[in-house]
Amino acid sequence: MSQVHNLWKTTTGLPVVGSSIGKRVFSLAFAQKAPYFATIHPRVADLRPNYCEVHIPKRRGVQNHIGTVHAIALCNGLEMAMGGLAEATIPSTKRWIPKGMTVSYTAKATSDIVCTAETDQEQWDTAEGDLPVRVKGVRDDGTVVIEGTINLWVTSKKK
């Protein structure tokens, strides 16, 4: 289990801290790993192998000129979800780096957004080279506002 996944289990599993506060603590710590994540004020709602869910609140700091959540803020949320998923899923003998992102903006992001990243375990079992991660962002009413793929480059760690 990776350090990120261990931190998730620790912060969300403590009875004194509780799930809600633990998720907040984890989200703050994870956003410091890549400080630009903090710009969207993310909240990690779920993290497990092959899945991560990140909530982006709609607030002035992430809005564009028409008052919707900016496309780059959405991509930032998708990348954070992908990174959480990758850290929680990758075998200890492998390493990963993002290689590219292809997304479609399918509707206006007029509310808070839930960004998710998903893979299938089989992808990681044989991972070497390209590994596509499915990503999407959804409005409060269930409308998909952004969807696509983030491609990872997965290689074996040097001995």
Rank of each mutant, 00 (worst) to 15 (best):
M1T: 00
S2K: 03
S2D: 14
H5Y: 15
N6Q: 14
N6W: 02
L7A: 14
W8L: 14
T10I: 09
T10N: 05
T11M: 13
T12V: 08
L14T: 04
L14Q: 08
P15N: 07
P15I: 09
P15A: 08
V16D: 06
V16L: 15
V17S: 09
G18H: 05
S19W: 06
S19K: 14
S20C: 10
G22W: 07
K23Y: 03
R24K: 12
R24W: 14
V25M: 14
F26G: 06
S27Y: 05
A34G: 02
A34D: 01
P35M: 05
P35S: 04
H41Q: 07
H41E: 08
L47V: 08
P49E: 09
Y51P: 04
Y51Q: 13
C52M: 14
C52K: 04
H55A: 04
H55Q: 12
I56N: 09
P57N: 05
R59H: 13
R60Q: 11
V62I: 14
V62K: 10
Q63L: 15
Q63I: 05
N64A: 12
N64T: 12
N64V: 12
G67F: 06
H70W: 09
H70T: 02
A73H: 08
G77M: 02
G77N: 13
M80G: 02
A81E: 09
M82A: 11
G83F: 14
G83V: 08
A88H: 00
S92Y: 00
T93D: 15
R95N: 07
R95A: 11
W96F: 13
I97R: 11
P98M: 09
K99I: 07
K99T: 12
G100C: 06
G100F: 03
G100D: 13
M101A: 12
M101G: 07
S104C: 11
Y105F: 15
T106Q: 11
S111F: 04
